[in-house]
Design a protein around this nucleic acid. Structure first.
Length: 556
RNA sequence: UGCCCGAUAGUAUAAAGGUAGUACAACUGGUUUUGGUCCAGUUUGUCUAGGUUCGAAUCCUGGUCGGGCAACCA
């Protein structure tokens, strides 16, 4: 181990376990999603942790679907989860399902019954809740708690054989109805559900509860470090109890704080609501914090992995600044994304002294961060250009390094121009800007000796192509939507999507392959959307560039 | 009112009884054919009250604050 890097608490535990030879120094983790929804950035944290720790210590990680509740689970979710884990860059050792262990779990339950540690209870859900007591009052036994082992064995078998309807009976552990830990007050082990399962079909009509499936699945796989989130801390004594009573492999559960992030939500239930009620278009809507949403938005696996590394792992509640995620994608894309020019809010600029009908092909480097510019592309230039409307001001303030009467700017990769005049339409809106250019200032061959403060991007009018550009912003207007008063949906940002149609793009962008990230110079990072076609290009904005000018001008 | 977790700059995360450090954010300046990047620098912190100790973010006790637990969900 390097002496420099400090360890998080899980790394410390694992290093100690390796040192003391626990499990023969073996490390086996698991990522255990329930296939009842799409993975989000919070799952990414767990994935990076489980797979990352195993990698770090020469171990392996299983992908295990925690599919014990057939009413909510679907194959569609299984597939999306596998896709997302792979996309993030991780390979699991074995693909497993809790449902693979149904037979084994059933025999575990039989063992508990034989040890008089489990019983069949005919009470209704309400009766069971009522007899559990409260945190300050002990629970009381139902009349079924004293059934004989033989009767329990028989009834449990009948439950399995389908003799009883949903809700008629449950199997409960016999532990301690007075325990200060509510999870130990005779928790449910099995419930009857005449529901088809996405893998086992109609083989079963009783299904194990989470607590009776998870730890035992860990034990069956001989997981050495079972890592989950904080809310499972009170379950740990139960987890250990089953392992003790069944005398199976002693997996151990460790808990860390789940990820929260500003301006978004992380609850699957709430995300599902956003989809179902049409606040977003789908699970992979680029505004969603889902892995698939981030992918469609233009985030790279590398940037997400880096993010998970930076946020760290600890046991205290956290609310990570969305800005950190944005920093991670900017940092990645700055080094890799090719630069292109696109004008999103166009106004025409006419170069009065450039010959009518003349055009030339200029060269622009793909990425100034890379040696040799990572190659270059040709950019057609002509007398009429599109530029951004806000790159001109009729009455420019001090320190406005763009266009205004008498001001000069560099047209990126082209010439320096000086603004001479502008034209207004009959409504008084500026519709045209007139400039003269300095022929000796051509990019790369500048002999003019003139230095200007500002450089702006542009697209030649006769060569411009068009595209739809979708500008995404944060989904919520407040940092922590779920802690605000009222319904979280009241805080949705009404301007989270702004559609620019058409935007003018330089011709080279017509060749953009799907999934390739670009930087539109001065505007941000963009990627082709999956709905894009060659006839109708659609770009998604991943993130803006940092904009200190915008900050300055809004602050004053 | 019971049990269980937690508390270090704005946000995260280190410091294992001995200099409170790092990243992001913010701010200043420099470089720059992107008001981007890059570089240099600045500001901001141990929840509280006691105790142990030569010395406490760290150990002990009390308090405060935040979170979790009483689903036939996971």
């Amino acid at each position: 181990m390097s002496e420099e890097k400090s360890l998080n608490f899980l790394e410390e535990i694992i290093e100690k376990d390796i040192e003391t030879g626990k499990h023969g120094g073996r490390v086996l983790t698991r990522f255990p999603p329930e296939p009842n929804g799409y993975l989000h950035i919070g799952h990414a944290k767990s994935i990076c942790l489980n797979f990352g720790l195993a990698q770090q210590y020469g171990g392996k990680t299983n992908l295990r679907f925690d599919d014990t509740n057939p009413s909510t689970e679907e194959v569609e979710y299984v597939n999306s989860i596998k896709m997302d884990v792979n996309w993030l860059g991780f390979q699991w050792d074995q693909e497993l399902y809790s449902s693979d262990y149904f037979e084994q779990l059933y025999s575990f339950a039989v063992i508990l019954i034989q040890k008089d540690l489990a019983y069949v209870d005919d009470s209704t859900a309400e009766e069971i809740a009522a007899t559990k007591g409260s945190p300050t009052e002990p629970g009381i036994p139902t009349i079924y708690r004293s059934r004989s082992i033989e009767e329990n064995l028989k009834l449990f078998e009948e439950m399995r054989s389908g003799k009883y309807p949903d809700g008629a009976k449950v199997l409960r552990a016999k532990i301690d109805l007075a325990s200060p830990n509510m999870h130990l007050r005779d928790p449910l082990l099995y419930r009857i559900k005449h529901v088809a399962h996405h893998r086992t079909g109609s083989d079963w009509c009783i299904y194990p509860m989470y607590d009776f499936a998870h730890g035992q699945s860990d034990a069956i796989e001989e997981i050495t470090h079972s890592i989950c989130t904080l809310e499972f801390i009170p379950h740990r004594p139960l987890y250990d109890w089953f392992i003790d009573q069944l005398a199976i492999f002693p997996s151990h559960q460790y808990e860390f704080a789940r990820l929260n992030m500003t301006y978004t939500i992380m609850s699957k239930r709430k995300l599902l609501q956003l989809v179902n009620e049409g606040h977003v278009t789908s699970w992979d809507d680029p505004r969603m914090p889902t892995i698939s949403g981030l992918r469609r938005r233009g985030y790279t696996p590398k940037s997400i992995r880096h993010f998970c590394e930076l946020i760290g792992v600890a046991k205290r509640e956290n609310n990570i600044d969305m800005g950190l995620l944005e920093y991670c994608i900017r940092e990645d894309l700055n080094k890799s994304a090719w630069r292109r020019m696109a004008v999103l809010d166009p106004i025409k600029l006419i170069i009065t002294n450039y010959p009518e009908g003349q055009e030339e092909l200029l060269q622009g480097e793909n990425n100034p961060e890379v040696e040799d510019g990572d190659g270059s592309r040709s950019i057609p230039f002509s007398k009429e250009l599109w530029i951004e409307r806000d790159d001109f001001m009729e009455n420019p303030p001090k320190k406005f390094f763009r266009l205004g009467i008498g001001l000069m700017v560099r047209l990126k990769s082209a010439y320096i121009v000086k603004c001479e005049d502008f034209v207004k339409d009959k409504n008084g809106n500026i519709c045209e800007i007139k400039c003269s250019y300095i022929p000796e200032s051509k990019s790369g061959h500048d002999t003019s000796g003139i230095h200007v403060k500002g450089t702006i991007h542009w697209v030649s009018v006769p060569h411009a192509q068009t595209a739809e550009v979708r500008l995404y912003d944060r989904l919520f207007q407040v940092e922590d939507p779920s802690s605000e008063e009222g319904d979280f949906k009241e805080y949705i940002n009404p301007n989270s999507l702004q559609i620019v149609k058409p935007a003018y793009i330089e011709p080279d962008l017509m060749n953009a392959p799907s999934g390739k990230n670009y930087q539109f110079i001065r505007k941000g990072y963009f990627v082709l959307d999956k709905e894009s076609t060659p006839q109708h290009l659609i770009f998604n904005r991943t993130v803006t560039l940092k904009d200190t000018w915008a900050k300055l001008s809004t602050n004053h």
